[in-house]
C-alpha cells in the first residue's frame, strides 16, 4: 500500500508506503467495497455493514483505533441490512470442516465498526440501550437481526482506558446458530 506524500500536508500525512495510517484510511475500501459475490458468504457481514468512523484521536493503527473506540464504548454494530441468509449454512460447513471449538473465532473479530456520534445518538433514541456484555450474550439470531450495542458518549477519562486486544471477551460475540 502506498501513501503518496502530500507536500502541502502536515507531518501526520507523510510517511512511506504501507504504514499504519494508510491502512486506516483505506480500511473503509477494504471492508465496504470490493466485489461481493452473492453465492458466497461474507464473514464480516455478520454485524458490519457500514463502517463509519469518527476520528477524535490521531490514529496510530487500525487496531489502536479500534481499541480506542471500544474503550470509549463507541463501537457500534450496524445491523446488516443485507445480512446474508446463506451464511449460517456456510458457517455450519466451516464448523463441520474441523474448526469445531474454535469456530466462534471465525465470526468474532469482525465486529469493529464505529459510528459517528450524531447518527449514533439519533439511532440510540430508537434502539435499546444495552451493555455490550449483554449484547454479547444475546442469542445469535437476535444479535444478527439487530446487534445494537449502545453506550453513553465518551468522556476524556474513557479515552485513556487501555484495552488489551486479546482480553476482550465482549467482542467475541457468538453468532453461531447451532451454538
Amino acid at each position: 500500500m502506498t501513501v503518496v506524500p502530500q507536500s502541502g500536508a502536515g507531518p501526520a500525512a507523510q510517511g512511506g508506503g504501507g504504514n499504519a495510517s494508510s491502512l486506516y484510511d483505506v480500511l473503509e475500501l477494504i471492508l465496504d467495497r470490493g466485489l461481493v459475490i452473492d453465492v458466497f458468504a461474507r464473514v464480516s457481514l455478520v454485524g458490519i455493514e457500514i463502517l463509519k468512523i469518527d476520528v477524535r484521536v490521531v490514529v496510530a493503527s487500525v487496531d489502536t483505533y479500534l481499541r480506542f473506540a471500544e474503550a470509549v464504548n463507541r463501537l457500534d454494530l450496524e445491523s446488516g441490512r443485507k445480512a446474508p441468509a446463506q451464511l449460517p449454512e456456510v458457517v455450519g460447513g466451516l464448523t463441520e470442516g474441523g474448526a469445531r471449538g474454535k469456530t466462534k473465532g471465525a465470526l468474532s473479530g469482525a465486529v469493529e465498526a464505529v459510528t459517528d456520534t450524531f447518527s449514533e445518538s439519533f439511532r440510540r433514541g430508537r434502539g435499546k440501550d444495552r451493555d455490550r456484555e449483554e449484547a454479547a450474550a444475546e442469542s445469535a439470531d437476535a444479535d444478527r437481526r439487530r446487534p445494537v450495542r449502545r453506550a453513553p458518549p465518551p468522556t476524556d477519562d474513557d479515552v485513556r482506558v487501555p484495552v488489551d486486544e486479546d482480553t476482550r471477551p465482549a467482542r467475541r460475540v457468538h453468532r453461531r446458530r447451532d451454538g
Binding site: 471492508l31 464473514v43 469482525a110
Partner: peptide
C-alpha cells in the same frame, strides 16, 4: 477485521494488481 487480516487481504490484492490486474473481493468472503 483488525490489522493483521485486513493488511494480509490488501497485500494479496496489491500483488495481484501488479500481476496483470484483479477484481478485488470484499474483505471476508468465504
Amino acid at each position: 477485521a483488525g490489522r493483521r487480516d485486513v493488511r494480509a487481504h490488501q497485500d494479496v490484492l496489491d500483488r495481484l494488481s501488479d500481476h496483470g490486474g484483479v477484481l478485488p473481493l470484499r474483505f471476508g468472503t468465504l
